[in-house]
Computed example of a mutant assay.
Amino acid sequence: MILDKEVALQRKLRIDPIEGSYNSYVVNEKYKRDWSGNIYLACVAAILVIAFFT
């Protein structure tokens, strides 16, 4: 969450049956990474580096 904007996370679900049990499953969730914070941080770092060397 940057600047009070909520980002909806997209999830990938993988449902696997549990061996040795009847009608039981395990749910594995993989979150999609939110790159907006890292891109913002990289831009700020690049601006600081350019300002430092000029």
Rank of each mutant, 00 (worst) to 15 (best):
M1P: 02
I2L: 05
I2F: 04
L3E: 04
L3Y: 06
L3H: 06
D4A: 05
K5C: 01
K5V: 01
K5R: 05
E6M: 00
V7H: 05
V7D: 02
V7M: 01
V7L: 02
A8E: 04
A8H: 03
L9W: 01
L9R: 06
L9S: 07
Q10R: 12
R11I: 03
R11P: 02
R11S: 03
R11H: 10
K12L: 06
K12H: 07
K12C: 03
L13M: 08
L13G: 01
L13Q: 00
L13A: 03
L13K: 08
R14P: 03
R14L: 11
R14G: 03
R14Q: 13
I15Y: 00
I15R: 11
I15H: 00
D16P: 00
D16G: 05
P17T: 13
P17Q: 15
P17D: 12
I18T: 07
I18P: 02
E19K: 10
E19D: 14
G20P: 01
G20L: 08
S21W: 06
S21A: 13
S21K: 14
S21L: 13
N23Q: 10
S24I: 10
S24R: 15
Y25Q: 09
Y25V: 10
Y25G: 01
Y25N: 08
Y25P: 01
V26P: 00
V26F: 07
V26Y: 07
V27A: 11
V27Y: 12
E29C: 08
E29G: 01
E29Y: 09
K30A: 14
K30T: 15
Y31H: 10
K32S: 15
R33D: 09
D34V: 13
D34Q: 10
D34F: 02
D34H: 06
W35I: 11
S36Y: 04
S36P: 01
N38V: 09
N38E: 14
N38Y: 12
N38I: 11
N38K: 11
N38H: 10
I39A: 10
I39W: 05
I39F: 09
Y40T: 14
Y40S: 13
Y40K: 12
Y40I: 14
L41Q: 08
L41S: 14
L41K: 13
A42S: 13
A42N: 07
C43N: 06
C43M: 10
V44Y: 04
A45E: 01
A45S: 09
A45F: 12
A45L: 12
A46L: 15
A46N: 06
I47F: 09
I47L: 14
I47D: 00
I47T: 07
L48T: 04
V49W: 13
I50V: 15
I50P: 02
I50K: 00
A51P: 02
A51G: 04
A51D: 03
A51I: 10
A51V: 11
A51K: 00
F52T: 14
F52C: 08
F53H: 08
F53R: 11
T54F: 10
T54P: 01
